[in-house]
Nucleic acid binder design. Structure first.
Lengths: 125, 125
DNA sequence: CAGAATCCATGTAGATACTG
DNA sequence: CAGTATCTACATGGATTCTG
């Protein structure tokens, strides 16, 4: 299959599928949370300490969205003090692969892109 | 390589690489423009007519960003009326593959995700 | 035709303070 | 510990108007 044919997957239904997933994972923290949860279950504070810069509010929102989408499971243990564990679901794990593909692309092409930006900016400025 | 090892690619430098690419392609139109340009060169108006809902301003901004990143080339023909053609660069084409992988994931898992959301919402509401 | 410029609505994210 | 609530700042995106 050529990339031309494959790119129809992106435009497909007017871009609904792509838009849907980018709305889900395109924000500032979601993919980082998913990647951080690729491994043993973590509790809230562990998650927060492993994701430098994320605020409580943003972590809460992000895991809630992921839970709603069925990509992360949230288990509350009825203890005092409370303990809540987060874990990727089977579906959530399947997201790792395409996400890594994207990260690979980013790592591979970043130098090139930054050079292009520098050229563009000096030429325009 | 396990997904666990691979997911380090995402968290890598504290998520810089992923953040960089999501800032680039995570917006509303970029991937749609890239996918639409996977094929013969198109002029501004052609591009706009093939991407339902995009405004002039957003198309202009999006192609400018892509040009700055070196993913799209912009060729101005000195004619009256003006003609401008857009085309994916070689680098731009390499983005198609991981983007399609993501679109595939979205298409595959959308039904499941929507079911999860429905369950979550009724349970919470 | 292909945009540039301006204005405005909305959403996203962060800081801060409080609580079961 | 694991949140919730509130407020605010900023970025994103859209509509409209104007132009080389």
């Amino acid at each position: 299959m050529s990339t031309y044919e494959r790119s129809c997957k992106i435009r497909g239904d007017g871009g609904r599928a792509i838009r849907g997933i980018l709305d889900r994972i395109g924000d500032k923290w979601t993919l980082l949370v998913v990647a951080t949860l690729d491994g043993p279950p973590l509790r809230f504070s562990e998650l927060q300490s492993r994701i430098p810069g994320i605020s409580q509010r943003m972590l809460t929102r992000t895991v809630r969205h992921l839970e709603r989408d069925g990509l992360v499971s949230r288990t509350v243990y009825a203890e005092v003090p409370p303990r809540v564990q987060y874990e990727l679901t089977a579906t959530g794990r399947t997201l790792i692969e395409p996400a890594v593909a994207l990260a690979d692309w980013a790592i591979d092409h970043n130098p090139e892109i930054e050079r292009s930006q520098a050229t563009y900016d000096t030429g325009t400025a």
